[in-house]
Design a binder for these strands. Structure first.
Lengths: 112, 112
DNA sequence: TGTCAATATCGACGACCATCGATGTGACCC
DNA sequence: GGGTCACATCGATGGTCGTCGATATTGACA
């Protein structure tokens, strides 16, 4: 997917017109969240605090390469932190990164 | 794209594991936001309060069918309200709908 | 009714991406 | 070193969707 780290790009999607570049960046950030497997991985890892990748293949029901791929996408986006311990890989969520997306959605638009 | 209306589906993506169905619904909601053209349309319409579709083709730089398609996707998702006046179509954002996505991202996860 | 303007819909094409089998890369153990 | 386990990467494939030209639809106006 070739994901860049999610970075703060605008304050309030609904407050001012987005430039083409800003829209592209924000869309890329949302695209990371736009996959059910990735959402389940995030929710499982967050609920457990820190999780070994070996505990993720079974509950999601996808192949090992697929899970590994999605974990890489989430890590590249800066939503997960990866730590290798021996032959195992441990993942944890980085909650701060979600603030960027929340801020983009937080709006005080003109009443509709 | 065959979009369903965005509906509240979970409180806090990062608080508890998502079911397969909930993950699918939430991913569909994010997928609506995962396109730069749609984000620009939302930001332009929100900034102007209410906008005629005829004012949207030029600033975004896409063909009329493409703009119409994206406006339909956003309307089907419940993010826009469409009102026909004569031969013109007026669009306005429905800010409440964004709360669902914000709530999904609002988390009190176990510290990472 | 006929014409034109503003949108919506259709059909097709192309690009992106989720998925998986096969393979590569380290780490541990004997 | 040989073998095995956990995980990452590669290559190929299939499906989804953004895009646009062509066409249909709807309303305004004469």
């Amino acid at each position: 997917m070739d994901v860049k780290t999610i970075t703060t790009c605008c304050d309030g999607l609904l407050t001012a017109p987005l430039s083409e570049a800003a829209a592209e960046d924000l869309a890329a950030a949302f695209r990371v969240m736009a996959d059910p497997v990735r959402l389940r991985l995030l929710s499982i890892i967050a609920a457990q605090g820190e999780t070994c990748a070996c505990n993720l293949t079974a509950p999601v029901g996808k192949s090992q390469p697929t899970i590994s791929h999605h974990l890489s996408v989430l890590t590249d986006a800066g939503l997960l932190r990866r730590e290798k311990r021996g032959k195992w890989a441990w993942y944890a969520v980085i909650p701060d990164r979600f603030a960027v997306l929340r801020d983009a959605l937080a709006a005080t638009p003109v009443a509709a």
